[in-house]
Design a protein around this nucleic acid. Structure first.
Lengths: 250, 250
DNA sequence: CCCCCACATTGATGCATATCAACTCCGTCC
DNA sequence: GGACGGAGTTGATATGCATCAATGTGGGGG
């Protein structure tokens, strides 16, 4: 598997090719998200073949992976870091439709044009596949398609959760639900139940929850004042799990 | 194809079996949503086989097709009428996550338990498949799976549109966007570009847009006062299409 | 080391939408 | 025909969150 990196200084699209295909099997076998991602649908011998279709790319924070309305050249399988997915209105309002974590697949829809933008919140590593190549491979692997369909319907369920949150929850419930949901997703990758890292900015959280930065900040300090959480550098620590969960109002 | 009906008086779950399998080919061939629905993925000879797996059901307004958190016995292919899909919070707040129109598929996710509720806004007709039976059939038809995957990713895109709407649009934009979107979907089934039928209540529209009944009503009368629409029995008529579209703020 | 800038927090005020309440319209059931 | 109830509209008021503004904080570069 070719390895490719981008550097801040060279702009978001500059890439450096590193190690060769020869090492790909070991890399895939060691993959931190093996078992979580699409690849879990593949047999070991298919995995080898599959991985030859991809490049490992490393991108710095703020790098663009996917640009809304542009032709979809690549699809990505995130292996490290955090990505925000969003749509923009013409007047600049932004709605973040999701955060992608290691193991997440970007470009499920396989449409010709991207229906959202995606950029790195923090430095990112990903397996990148040319869309056409992936589509051809997919056409002859029904179990991979099945896996992809599972992932899309899971995404759809999450999207519906998010609609309930955006349409019918108060600011405090939104922030509490966000913290719980993010912790649950994070703990699937890296057990650390009570410390929740928050690599994204308050603005990002606000644009995800349909709130302003100020409101997010106020709700965070309210939760801290109520001894439900403590705000720590780059995240929060949960003090009262039960109370935080009860604030989500199922 | 067996035909089955429910009557108001007998409660939402009473069903009457009507015509037999012998007529199913003609029925499927004449299906008003042929070409729109999942079935468009099937060859004529497969369609015959496929239709034998289903029953045609007729349900009155308010009948429940799908109940949240219950075991998913059936999946549905809507052929006539309108269905609301929603989730409830424990305190009674409701978020409608979508309206299903003829041709729409209910139960894409094929999960063991339903992740939302669905009931008829107006009397409904649908092809109903036992989930297990459909799943078995699906397992041996990759092109049907492909079609299902197309439908899910389309749903996902719509869900993301809805997130933008719920998180970042004003009440007036929400109502305008709803009218335009509903007209576009409706016109794919029944050409009538300027008259938009609205079989659902104002409460339903509010629960879809994250607004109260009163706000929906006010925005409707504002649009009418501004000569953008006229409110007619069971719907609206568009007077100024350009203006209505511009209010959506893309 | 200190300046700078982006991010976060806090406070004061405004506004869009929710809430509460009254009234109309219309269809249904006695 | 009249009583009733649900849906829709309209008005008065309340409030949750946005907006505007000021201050605090931490990291990177000269």
């Amino acid at each position: 598997m070719a390895r490719v990196s981008a550097h801040d200084g060279d702009g978001p699209h500059s890439l450096r090719v590193g190690c060769s295909h020869a090492t790909c099997e070991t890399i895939c076998a060691d993959c931190p998200v093996r078992g979580l991602a699409v690849c879990s649908a593949l047999e070991p011998e298919e995995l080898d073949e599959f991985s030859r279709l991809s490049q490992t790319v490393h991108l710095p924070g703020k790098a663009t992976l996917i640009a809304q309305d542009e032709e979809a050249e690549y699809i990505f399988n995130l292996t490290a870091g955090v990505v925000r997915l969003y749509r923009l209105l013409s007047d600049g309002r932004r709605q973040i439709v999701g955060f992608a974590l290691p193991g997440d697949f970007l470009g499920l829809a396989m449409t010709k044009r991207n229906t959202f933008s995606a950029d790195a919140v923090a430095p990112v590593a990903a397996c990148r596949f040319p869309r056409e190549v992936f589509a051809r491979y997919l056409a002859e692997k029904p179990h991979l398609l099945r896996r992809l369909h599972e992932l899309s319907t899971h995404e759809l369920t999450l999207a519906q959760d998010q609609m309930v949150l955006l349409g019918r929850r108060t600011a405090e419930e939104k922030v509490a639900a966000f913290l719980i949901a993010f912790r649950d997703r994070w703990s699937r990758i890296n057990q650390a139940h009570l410390h929740i890292p928050l690599p994204m900015s308050r603005q990002d959280i606000g644009d995800f929850l349909g709130l302003t930065v100020e409101t997010v900040s106020r709700m965070m300090t309210k939760l801290a004042r109520d001894k439900v959480i403590v705000i720590v550098p780059d995240g929060v620590r949960i003090l009262d799990e039960k109370k935080l969960e009860s604030l989500c109002a199922g």
